[in-house]
Structures are given as C-alpha cells and as structure tokens.
Design a protein around this nucleic acid. Structure first.
Lengths: 182, 182
DNA sequence: TTGAAAACTGGCCGATCGGTCAGTCAGGAT
DNA sequence: ATCCTGACTGACCGATCGGCCAGTTTTCAA
C-alpha cells in the first residue's frame, strides 16, 4: 500500500491493461507490440523490457482468469463425484461472465495455442474442466461438453452486444440443455 | 471428359486443393502464399497469376460450401414457416458433415472476416441460416442458435478425431437439445 | 547531494509478409 | 518457319513484424 505505486508495477499494469483491450478488439495475432506500446504510452522497447516477449504479454493478460480456473479445478478435485458436474456448471458460468474479455481473447489464440508454452497450464486446466462438465467418460458426453465450451467461447466474442446478466442466462441455459441428462 | 485437363484448370484446382489442406492444418492467417505455392508445386507468382490475391484463394476454397449454403437458404425461403426449423436443422447437419473441412477453415477467418469482402455472401447466408435455426425472433432463441453454430464450428476443428457418422450424431444431438422447444 | 541501479528509449536488425513486374517459354494457329 | 499468346517464374518491392542493444533519463537510498 505505498502512497504512490512504484514505477515498475505501474507501467507493467498499464501495458497489460491496454494489451487486454487491444487483444479483445483486434485479436492477439493482429495486435503488434508497437500497438500495445503506443496505447500504453511507452515505447515498444519498454514493453520488451517488462515482458520477455509477446507470448509473455499474453500470459499476463490471461493470468487472472488462469488463476481462477486453476482454483476451480483444485476445488473440483476435492469434491465427491456426485457433485462435480453441477458445481462445474455453476462455477464455469460465473467465470465465463467474470472473465468474458479473456474468453474473447482465447478464441483468437486457439489456432496457435501449441506455439505458446506460456499458457500451457491454462489449456491443461481447461481440458480437465471440460471433463468435469461432461459428467461421464462417455464419448458423446465429452463431445457435448467440448461443444458447449466452444459455443460459449464464441458467444463472448462480441463484447458490446450483451449485458453480463444476459450472458449469464444464455450460458446457464445452454450448458444445462446440452449437458444435463437426468 | 477431356483427355487432358487444360493446364489452366489443372493448376488452379491443385492450388485450391493444397490451400484447403494448409488452411485446415495451420489456419488461413498462418498460411502464406509461398506455402500454398510450394505445396502446389508452382511459384508464388503463379498463385497470384490465377487468383487476384490471398482472399481470392480463400473464396475459391470456400466456394463449394458457400454454394450449398446459398441453395439451402433459397429452399428455406420457399418453405412454410412451420417446417423451416426442422428442415434447417436436418440440412445444416448434412452440410456440416459434408463440408467439415470448410467449417474448420471458417473458424480461423472469423476474427478478420470484415476485411475479406470476397466471402461476404457466405457470411450473410450464414446469418440468415442461423435465424432459421433459431425458429423464433426471441433473443434467447437467437443466441442459442448462434451458440449452436459456434459450438459446431469448434467441433469441426480437429479433423482426425471423429468419423463423419460420429460428427453427424453429435451435431444432430446438440442442435436438437439446444434448439427444440416443443 | 550524489552516484549507482532501475526504467526507459531510438534506432536498428533479420525475417517474412502479400504483391508487382518484366521477361521466359512451350505450343497451337497461320 | 513464324508469330502470338497463355502459362509461368525469379527477382524484387515496401511494409511490418518481433526482438535486440547501446545509451540516455529518472529514481531513490545513502
């Protein structure tokens, strides 16, 4: 709680903030380091002074969401199997709304995701989460869960078109129709 | 037909063939004209001799699917409203399986789709098709239809993982669970 | 006040991109 | 035999990319 944020942290935060907006608006691949630097009010060299490279900027943008997903997976691991699917559906909806901007960014990264080792952890957690959403080892259930995640990612694409409440309702409805087989 | 395919058509076809494979494997943005030329056994200049630019190559790759979608929309227009949703679901499933490779390619183009006027027709038809899938003007129904299309696009991403029959079953199940409200 | 460390930057690099262009070449028509 | 034309190509272009580095400016503890 310093009276003034140290210069390092202040600049770093601004870079991540602006990178987030640009990644959402134009996509990761279409956003250059120069774009990020200009938006953050510094030089491209400064961006590379704070981050080891473009993928590191991406990892910093995704980090809060990645942490939440990791925590969710941790909680799911400790839950009795009978409760995991319902818990996964409910909490995944929460995270999707909370981090809808990040969901948007992820869309654009998927095609080149194997070239970005910085976010391998998030990818692995996402796969585990999908398995919990499926609720069984059945191939069709697994595929439907992946279908649901893909659909949800797509729905987060256009930020201004939906309020958080609308997104929550859509997400919840879609997941329950696709996944719940009581 | 002709004993020997005219050189023009032969080269053109090979370029489209190879571009299709590369777009699927690596994505449109990550595939360079040089990549396509090398795969097709000609020079980059030859690709640009046959096509006015990279977007024109994309349009040629998508053309068969675009034609089928246009035909489907035409048929839907002439159908009584009580039959359109069921017809759309059934035929859309058919087209998704038939053109699953194209569905894969489209995924990668969506972020930059507004910069590719060559495929504006396919985009417009896709939107109209989504409206028929929704079955009503209700916002949630519309969103669920878009959700379904996004999910389906995502499921076509990894070509080798599913047989056509598995994809058909998944597609049909998911669409009916999401869309049908009887 | 001062000096060393931290923060920052302009300029440059090699690579790659989509695209252009002048010119080569085979082969059918005359 | 000549010419013409469609198919094709190597060389090159300007732009842009991510990244690097030497050097300048700012910060802050001693």
């Amino acid at each position: 709680m310093a009276v003034t944020t140290p210069a390092r942290e202040r600049t770093r935060r601004e870079i991540v903030r602006q990178a987030m907006d640009l990644f959402q608006a134009a996509g990761y691949n279409a956003t250059s380091l120069q774009d990020i630097a200009t938006a953050a009010g510094c030089s491209k060299a400064t961006v590379l002074y704070h981050f080891s490279g473009k993928p590191a900027v991406l990892a910093a943008v995704l980090e809060p969401a990645a942490a939440d997903v990791a925590e969710l997976v941790r909680q799911l691991t400790a839950l009795p199997p009978s409760e995991t699917q319902e818990f996964a559906i409910r909490r995944f909806t929460d995270l999707a709304v909370l981090h809808r901007g990040v969901m948007d960014v992820i869309q654009d990264v998927i095609p080149v995701i194997e070239n970005v080792p910085e976010i391998a952890g998030l990818v692995a957690d996402g796969i585990r989460l999908t398995e919990y959403l499926a609720g069984s080892d059945d191939t069709l259930d697994r595929d439907l869960a992946k279908f649901a995640v893909n659909g949800l990612l797509g729905e987060c694409r256009y930020p201004g078109e939906r309020t958080d409440d609308e997104l929550r309702r859509l997400c919840d409805t879609a997941l329950r129709r696709l996944l719940r087989r009581d």
